[in-house]
């Protein structure tokens, strides 16, 4: 079976300090998966390795059968991988429309075009459609700096949905959102086309468990459990981590 994303023995060390230690995990096409774990567990580092922001010390990453371990970030994106960031990395001085437009053009061959596009160009139309899909039509002409935090998060997801994404990595999309904005986010994630898979890093278990089929729990750079949402909440090792009764190696204290 070809996995959407297959990670085998992925390790990254900074000097003596091993941040990820032989992590192996597979994601199927269209799968919705959550990665949980305390701060410092290595979740965002795993994302950074998957997208190519960091180079692994050892291990392999395959995306739809292609070995992308040493592939540059922009080429992974063009293969259909997308991500959002924990801290917003939007272009604050550009409008919502221009941010989405930059994302739409990023995966197109015409990204180097030096002449402005006409209003009926397909990329301009795609930009408008995407703005509608993430419910930002009313603020399309506003600069990002003038948006609420929740709207910025919606925009992040909108940018990740540009083109034809196959798999999206969502890094704490609900961080700092109000209860209403969280509900909007859940609806947005649930409304994603079924063929688009995603992995979500999220501290809010209500959100994470609501929108995924599978949960992986990490601690101290290792995977300690990978089960369904119903099973994971009963897992004593996971309960121990979240109740704070594990040692620094992730082992549960009885």
């Amino acid at each position: 079976m070809t996995y959407a994303l297959s990670i085998v023995d992925l390790t990254i060390s900074f000097g003596e300090f091993t941040v990820l230690d032989k992590v192996t995990v597979n994601f199927s096409p269209g799968e919705r998966h959550a990665i949980l774990g305390p701060n410092g567990a290595g979740k965002t580092t795993l994302f950074n390795l998957i997208t190519g922001d960091l180079k692994p010390t050892s291990g392999t990453i395959e995306f739809y059968g292609n070995d992308v371990t040493n592939t540059s970030t922009h080429k992974r994106i063009r293969l259909g991988m997308r991500r959002t960031y924990q801290s917003s990395l939007l272009f604050k001085d550009l409008t919502v429309r221009d941010n989405i437009f930059a994302a739409v053009r990023g995966i197109k061959a015409g990204r180097m075009k030096v002449l402005p596009l006409s209003k009926d160009h397909s990329d301009v139309i795609d930009t408008e459609k995407l703005i509608g899909r993430v419910h930002l039509k009313d603020v399309a002409d506003k600069k990002v700096v003038d948006l609420s935090h929740g709207q910025q998060r919606q925009l992040e997801i909108g940018m990740a949905m540009a083109g034809e994404p196959k798999f999206i990595l969502l890094d704490e999309p609900a961080a700092g959102l109000s209860p209403k904005e969280r509900d909007d986010l859940v609806r947005l994630l649930e409304g994603l086309p079924s063929e688009i898979g995603f992995v979500i890093i999220e501290h809010d278990l209500d959100i994470a468990l609501k929108v995924v089929e599978q949960v992986t729990v990490m601690s101290n750079g290792k995977i300690i459990a990978s089960e369904s949402p119903q099973e994971i909440v009963k897992n004593p090792q996971v309960q121990a981590i979240y109740m704070g009764t594990h040692d620094h190696k992730g082992n549960m204290h009885a």
Binding site: D53, T73, Y85, R111
Partner: peptide, 10 residues
């Protein structure tokens, strides 16, 4: 403004 983000947009 943000080279890392642009890489992540392709």
């Amino acid at each position: 403004d943000n080279p890392r983000r642009m890489k992540a947009l392709g």
